[in-house]
């Protein structure tokens, strides 16, 4: 079974850790946390990354930069905004993002 790696970008550390814990509860998923777009860009170049979730604290300008920089190198990598900060919407967002 191949683990699906999901990058979560945000600046609120306690919420990021909660999201990581929730993602890791699914044995098929593994969260990778990035606290800035620069940090995320390095991680997202890895082929094992299948989804990017954008959490709280990331500006629209930073999201645009992320999309622009990934457009050439990982053009099919889904990048979606995460809402809610917990389990309520997370799993639906991941299923939608992965197209499952």
């Amino acid at each position: 079974m191949q683990t699906i790696e999901i990058v979560v970008i945000g600046t609120n550390k306690p919420i990021m850790q909660t999201i990581a814990r929730l993602i890791d509860q699914n044995e098929e998923w593994k969260a990778k946390l990035a606290y800035s777009v620069t940090e995320a860009l390095n991680i997202c170049l890895q082929e094992s990354i299948k989804l990017v979730l954008i959490g709280a604290g990331i500006t629209e300008e930073e999201i645009d930069r992320l999309k622009l920089e990934l457009a050439n190198q990982r053009p099919h990598l889904p990048i979606i905004k995460h809402y809610g900060g917990g389990s309520g919407l997370l799993f639906a967002e991941i299923h939608q993002g992965l197209g499952s």
Partner: peptide
């Protein structure tokens, strides 16, 4: 009830 839990952007 619901123990302490986080929310953002909602």
């Amino acid at each position: 009830g619901f123990g302490e839990h986080p929310h953002d952007n909602m």
